[in-house]
């Protein structure tokens, strides 16, 4: 299983690895969601969907089904904030 944006937890960041050409709407790409960019998960809506991400300076809301198509490698450790606090 590869990690996707849908696997991020709130506050976590990742780097986009690849975007499936056929499944992703062009619009998402146009908003700056492309390989090499850092993506941060800001919030997940109640009922676990949609997801609020920041990528390439754009604040976007996308549905989980699309988030699952954006493959990433996680950059920051999962609980960075807690590490610093402790």
């Amino acid at each position: 299983m590869e990690t996707t944006v849908a696997d991020l937890s709130i506050g976590e960041k990742g780097k986009i690895k690849e975007v499936c050409f056929n499944d992703i709407p062009l619009k998402l790409l146009e908003m700056g969601c492309m390989p090499g960019k850092e993506v941060e998960l800001v919030q997940i809506a109640p009922l676990n969907d949609p997801m609020y991400i920041i990528v390439n300076g754009s604040h976007l809301a996308i549905r989980r089904e699309i988030a699952e198509l954006i493959k990433i490698e996680t950059t920051a450790p999962k609980n960075l904030c807690e590490v610093i606090k402790s």
């Binding site: 619009k27 754009s58 976007l60 996308i62």
Partner: peptide, 10 residues
């Protein structure tokens, strides 16, 4: 097919 992408503006 659903294309749900919205911007959350400043």
């Amino acid at each position: 097919k659903s294309y749900f992408v919205i911007e959350l503006p400043d």
